[in-house]
């Protein structure tokens, strides 16, 4: 049983006018097997939270802590965090010139597992995961994210989630830009990976649509850099009907 704790997290970014505070005291605890949905208006700091967990250098933690099974995550480099079991499916995955998907996946798997995967089993595993996500097998010979459509990039993120088997997965708007079929395929991918590995999920989304496939145990309303309200799945339905007005104007 793994545990991810975020305590009183304050984060700022550097701007031309000096540091700007974005997260203002986030508290969140996730256990293995739990799914937490985070919903909130544009610019409220959801991606900032996701990137801060992953360790993006743009964000500075000014207060608070992040603990993974009691270990101080904030002291770890980005790659150490990934090897410790944190995974971020990005809202905008970047293109990597010159690196094929197959080479990238093998290198990442080797880094995270600490040893190269046995070649035969690995190729089969990749092929099966791709076919589950309805990804054409010739993606493996293309450069990472280069020329991928928005939806293909998201499938590629979930492919990595399936193969890298983290302890906790942060999914930043994985559902944005997906058509109805792709949404189902990608959601099933997340569920399949979760059933196999029992990881905890932090799911950032604007839409309740995805929550029909990936059932959240908890829903958190994120406003102005912190959690404004928490509840069960019924909270998502209420947000969809009422919007964020009552929080924003509160």
């Amino acid at each position: 049983m793994a545990l991810l704790q975020i305590k009183n997290l304050h984060v700022s970014v550097e701007t031309e006018q000096g540091p700007k505070a974005i997260l203002r005291g986030v508290d969140l605890t996730i256990r293995s097997g739990e799914t937490h949905a985070i919903m909130g208006p544009n610019g409220s700091g959801k991606s900032t939270l996701a990137y801060t967990i992953a360790g993006h250098p743009k964000y500075t933690v000014t207060e608070g802590e992040i603990l993974l099974d009691g270990e101080n995550v904030l002291e770890m480099s980005v790659d150490e965090r990934a090897r410790a079991g944190l995974f971020l499916a990005m809202q905008y995955p970047v293109e990597i010139p010159g690196v094929t998907v197959s080479n990238f996946l093998r290198t990442a798997k080797t880094a995270i597992a600490g040893e190269a995967p046995a070649i035969r089993g690995w190729v089969g595993e990749v092929r099966e995961a791709m076919s589950n996500l309805k990804m054409d097998s010739d993606f493996t010979e293309r450069n990472v994210n280069e020329g991928f459509s928005g939806g293909e990039k998201k499938r590629h993120e979930i492919l990595q989630l399936e193969l890298l088997k983290p302890k906790f997965a942060v999914l930043d708007e994985t559902d944005s830009g997906l058509d109805v079929d792709a949404l189902r395929i990608v959601s099933e991918g997340v569920n399949r990976a979760k059933d196999a590995n029992g990881f905890g999920v932090l799911l950032i989304t604007h839409y309740t649509r995805i929550l029909n496939y990936i059932k959240p145990d908890f829903v958190h309303v994120f406003v102005a850099g912190k959690i404004a309200e928490e509840g069960g799945p019924e909270l998502a339905a209420r947000l969809e009907a009422e919007g964020y007005d009552r929080y924003v104007n509160a």
């Binding site: 790659d79 990005m90 990238f104 995270i112």
Partner: peptide
């Protein structure tokens, strides 16, 4: 680019190697 590769567990020197070698 570096962040993306690091976020998949690859250390910075290996990340650079991967990109340059591939290229």
């Amino acid at each position: 680019h570096l962040f993306y590769l690091q976020a998949r567990g690859i250390n910075p020197l290996d990340a650079k190697r991967l990109v340059v070698r591939g290229f």
